[in-house]
Design a protein around this nucleic acid. Structure first.
Length: 258
DNA sequence: ATGGTGGTGAAACCA
């Protein structure tokens, strides 16, 4: 059995104790982190390695940044994707055992009338091309992270109010759908078609207390992996911790080897 | 309808 998790930590330096505690208590094989917001020189790798994890990371000042933690040594690590703006550090991929693991922090898009929205759609199209090529090379593959897209209305606390807005707009959902059409299944939704599984609640307006959430963090698994998925769950307890990230953690268990 | 909070890095921007 392998256990794989993803978490947008919104600053790894602020959330390091949360991450270390979750690792110790849950002992996943893989943990993908987004919005580390730390440059490589200041990445707290020693604390993570002390718990028995390898870690690869790519960061920049102030924004973005991703890391991939694993019990086994990562091979074929990549942080540069052809066609993607290299100034924004949003991707880390590696081969762990015989599984290809790709960790994403998809652009937020800000609002549908923003230049950042078109950047997001272009980014997703480039990512689709990359993933198509990866799927041609690796049978057992998982793509996970903060997609900044709520796939369907069940994933939105107030779909009427949000209709057409960034995070839920049709072009974004279509771009995600095109990625899934490559042969990647939304793990949580496949396992639990009718369960609300929010992973993000706005810091503002007491979003978490009032459960005004969205499901923006996803795991997409290739056929051989989804077939052996035993469980997938949002760990919302981390959203209730002192000084939390605005995202919960998502994890899944698969009845296979890495 | 608006604004509410939090992170970065030291004001304004992003989410």
């Amino acid at each position: 059995m392998i256990k794989i998790a993803t978490w947008n930590v919104n600053s790894l330096r602020i959330r390091l104790s949360h991450v270390l505690e979750w690792l110790e208590q849950n002992k996943p094989d893989v943990l993908a982190l987004q919005e580390t917001k730390v440059v490589d020189d200041k990445f707290p790798h020693a604390d993570i390695e002390a718990l028995g994890y390898h870690v690869i990371f790519t960061g920049q000042p102030t924004f973005n940044g991703v890391a991939l933690l694993s019990r086994v040594s990562p091979q074929e690590a990549t942080t540069e994707i052809e066609g993607l703006d290299a100034a924004q550090r949003r991707v880390v991929a590696a081969t762990l055992g015989s599984t290809r693991v790709i960790n994403l922090y998809v652009p937020n898009g800000q609002s549908v009338d923003s230049d950042k929205y078109q950047y997001k759609l272009d980014w997703l199209q480039t990512m689709r091309r990359y993933l198509k090529n990866e799927l041609a090379q690796y049978q057992q593959l998982i793509v996970m992270g903060d997609f900044n897209i709520a796939p369907a209305d069940i994933d939105v606390y107030d779909p009427k109010a949000w209709k057409g807005h960034v995070l839920v707009s049709e072009p974004e959902r279509q771009a995600l759908h095109e990625i899934q059409r490559l042969g990647l299944s939304d793990v949580f939704r496949t396992k639990y078609p009718d369960v609300v599984g929010y992973t993000w609640w706005d810091y503002r307006a007491a979003g978490f207390r009032r459960n005004l959430g969205m499901r923006l963090d996803l795991m997409l698994a290739s056929k051989s992996l989804i077939q052996c998925c035993k469980h997938c769950e949002v760990d919302a307890a981390v959203r209730a911790l002192e000084r939390p990230s605005d995202h919960a953690l998502l994890f899944a268990e698969f009845d296979t080897q890495l």
